[in-house]
Design a protein around this nucleic acid. Structure first.
Length: 342
DNA sequence: GTTGAGCGTT
C-alpha cells in the first residue's frame, strides 16, 4: 500500500493520500481532502512541463506502470469557475444570460386608485422609498387638468419594481395598487405558453423543445394535426414568453415567429359557441386554437412542485391555491375560470 | 367643486 503526495496548489504543503491495491487513486479519496477537485496534475522536472493524471470512472492512474506514482508532488485541478455555472452545453449559458437580461428590464407600472389630489411629485416621493424612480406621472383630463385617479411609475431597478408590484400602497390617504399595464398586451395570454408561427413541416416537436429549452424549462410542445404552419411551446416559468416576443428565432434555418399564445374559448358540449373568431378579442395572432389553459395538462403550473411561480418576489402575499391565477402581476385582470370547466 | 373601476403616450 502506497501513498501519493497531493497539495491543493502547486508548491503547497502536500498531503499523503492512500492508493488502492491496484495502484490507482480513487477520486473519492482525493475529494475527501479536496472537495471540489476534479483531477490531478504534476510537473516534469526536466522539461518543466505540467502533465495531467489519467483518470477514468472515478479512478486516477499513476503515470507509469513500473514506478507507480513516483516521487512527484501532485496538485489539484478544479473545474473552471465560469464553466461550472452552466454544466452542460454552451447553449445553456447563452440561455441563462438571455433569461435574466430581459427580466431585469423595467417598464411603466400603472398605479390605480390614486387620490385626485395626488400629484406627479407626491407620487414620485412615495415610490422613491422603494428605489430610484425614473418616472412618475398622473394621468389628467386634457381640458380640465383633473386627475383621472391613476398614473404611471417607472423604476430604475427591477428589484424595486418587483417589490412594488401587486400590493397595496397607502398613498395620500388612499389604498392604491400597482400593476403591469394591460397595454402591454398580455391580458389574454396563457401563462408560459408561446405561439410559434411560420413553422415548416420539418420542424418537429423535438426541434422545438431543443431550441426553446435554452430559454427555460419546456413542459409541453404541441404541433396541431393536420399541419397548419404553427405550433405551441409551453414553459414552466410563466414569465418566459414575454421575453421571447419580437426577437428573431431561427429553427432549422427557418425564421419562425414567436408571439403570445392567447386563450381560446372552448365551446361547451351542449352549448356551442358559434365562432371563436368572432369573439371579442382583437389580437392579431391566428392562435386561437388553444385549450383553455387551465384545463390543459401542460398548464397545471399551480400544482407543479418545481413551479417558481408562487415564489416570485412579487407574489409573496397570497399562497392559497385558489388564488394562484390572480397572483400574476403581469395579468392585470386576474385569470378567470372558464365556464367550460364547470 | 362631485366620483372610485379602469389602462397612457412616444
Amino acid at each position: 500500500m502506497g501513498f501519493v503526495q497531493v497539495s491543493e496548489k502547486e508548491g503547497d504543503e502536500p498531503i499523503e493520500l492512500p492508493v488502492e491495491e491496484d495502484g490507482t487513486l480513487l477520486l473519492s479519496t482525493l475529494q475527501a481532502q479536496f472537495p471540489e477537485c476534479s483531477g490531478l496534475q504534476y510537473r516534469i522536472v526536466e522539461t518543466k512541463a505540467v502533465r495531467g493524471v489519467r483518470s477514468n470512472e472515478g479512478r486516477m492512474y499513476s503515470p507509469s506502470e513500473e514506478s507507480g506514482w513516483g516521487e512527484y508532488h501532485y496538485f489539484c485541478v478544479f473545474p473552471k469557475k465560469n464553466k461550472r455555472q452552466s454544466d452542460d452545453n454552451s447553449e445553456n449559458s447563452v440561455a441563462k444570460t438571455k433569461r435574466t437580461e430581459p427580466l431585469l428590464r423595467c417598464f411603466d407600472l400603472i398605479v390605480l386608485g390614486l387620490s385626485y389630489n395626488t400629484t406627479d411629485r407626491t407620487l414620485r416621493e412615495f415610490f422613491e422609498t422603494y428605489g430610484d424612480v425614473v418616472k412618475a406621472e398622473i394621468k389628467r383630463d386634457n381640458t380640465s387638468g383633473q386627475s383621472k385617479g391613476f398614473g404611471f411609475v417607472r423604476f430604475g431597478s427591477y428589484d424595486a419594481q418587483m417589490r412594488v408590484l401587486s400590493k397595496r400602497h397607502l398613498i395620500d390617504g388612499r389604498w392604491c395598487e400597482v400593476k403591469v399595464p394591460s397595454s402591454r398586451g398580455i391580458g389574454n395570454q396563457v401563462p408560459g405558453k408561446v405561439f410559434v408561427g411560420r413553422c415548416t413541416e420539418d420542424i418537429g416537436t423535438e426541434d422545438l423543445r431543443e431550441y426553446f429549452s435554452q430559454f427555460g424549462d419546456v413542459i409541453d410542445v404541441v404541433i396541431p394535426k393536420p399541419f397548419r404552419g404553427f405550433s405551441f411551446v409551453t414553459f414552466l416559468d410563466p414569465y418566459i414568453p414575454q421575453l421571447l416576443w419580437g426577437e428573431d428565432h431561427i429553427i432549422k434555418g427557418v425564421s419562425v415567429r414567436v408571439s403570445s399564445a392567447d386563450k381560446k374559448v372552448v365551446p361547451k358540449k351542449n352549448q356551442q359557441i358559434q365562432s371563436c373568431k368572432n369573439s371579442s378579442n382583437n389580437n392579431t395572432n391566428n392562435n386561437n386554437d388553444l385549450d383553455i389553459f387551465n384545463m390543459h395538462a401542460a398548464n397545471n403550473f399551480n400544482m407543479h412542485p418545481g413551479n417558481n411561480f408562487n415564489m416570485h418576489p412579487a407574489n409573496n402575499f397570497i399562497m392559497h391555491p385558489a388564488n394562484n391565477f390572480n397572483m400574476n402581476p403581469f395579468n392585470p385582470h386576474g385569470y378567470q375560470m372558464n365556464r367550460a370547466m364547470n
